[in-house]
Simulated assay, not measured.
Amino acid sequence: MKLNEAIELGKTGRWQDAQVRVSPDNSNQWFVMLRDSHYKYFVLSDNDDRPIATEEMNRLADLIRSIGLKEFTVFL
């Protein structure tokens, strides 16, 4: 799910929750999965459709807030 699209859908209340998980490619990085109201999961990606993965949890927290969610679950 592209970031701009996720933000727009977040304004309509589409997202039920977000999960932050360890990247399968790099155990030092994290990525975000979003779950919509139909229980379908999406990986949050940039606007070039590349998954957003970072070592900085605070950056992901800011992204999650930008799509309209105030909480997320972290999976180790």
Rank of each mutant, 00 (worst) to 15 (best):
W15K: 03
T54F: 09
N47K: 07
D48M: 09
N28I: 01
N4Q: 14
L34C: 09
M57T: 05
E5W: 10
I67T: 08
T73N: 01
S66G: 02
V43G: 05
Y39G: 00
R65N: 13
N26K: 00
A53S: 14
L3Y: 15
Y41E: 10
F31Y: 15
L3I: 11
P24E: 02
A6F: 02
Q19P: 00
K70I: 09
V20K: 00
K40Y: 10
K11W: 03
I52L: 11
E71I: 04
S27H: 11
E8S: 15
R35H: 03
L69A: 07
Q19Y: 10
N47T: 06
E5Y: 11
D49H: 12
G68R: 11
V74K: 14
W15V: 03
I67G: 08
L60K: 13
L44E: 05
D49L: 09
I64A: 11
D46E: 06
L3G: 06
R14E: 04
G68K: 11
L34I: 09
A61L: 12
R14N: 01
K11D: 05
N47Q: 07
W30Q: 10
T12E: 12
G10C: 11
N47D: 15
S27I: 09
I52G: 07
M33P: 01
N58P: 00
D46Y: 06
E56Q: 13
R14Y: 04
S66F: 01
D48P: 00
S45M: 07
M1R: 00
G13T: 04
V22N: 05
E55C: 08
N58C: 02
Q16A: 07
A6C: 03
E56V: 08
H38T: 10
P51M: 09
E71R: 15
Q29P: 03
A18G: 01
S27G: 05
H38Y: 10
A61K: 15
D46V: 05
Y41L: 06
A53Q: 13
S37K: 14
S27E: 12
R14G: 00
Q16L: 09
T12C: 04
M1Q: 01
M1L: 07
G10H: 11
A6K: 03
K70E: 13
N58S: 14
D48G: 05
M33D: 06
R50N: 14
G10D: 12
S66D: 11
V20C: 00
V32N: 00
K2R: 15
M33T: 12
E5T: 15
V20Y: 01
V22D: 04
A6Y: 02
P24L: 02
E8I: 14
W30S: 09
M57L: 15
E8V: 13
R35P: 00
N47Y: 06
W30D: 03
R59F: 14
D62A: 14
K2A: 06
R21Y: 03
L34Y: 08
T12L: 12
I67V: 15
R50K: 13
V20L: 00
P24C: 00
V22M: 07
K70C: 08
D36M: 00
M57C: 02
L63R: 10
D25H: 08
F72R: 03
N28A: 10
R59G: 10
D62S: 15
D36T: 01
N4R: 13
R59P: 01
N26M: 00
Q16S: 07
W30A: 03
G68T: 10
E56K: 14
K70H: 11
A18D: 02
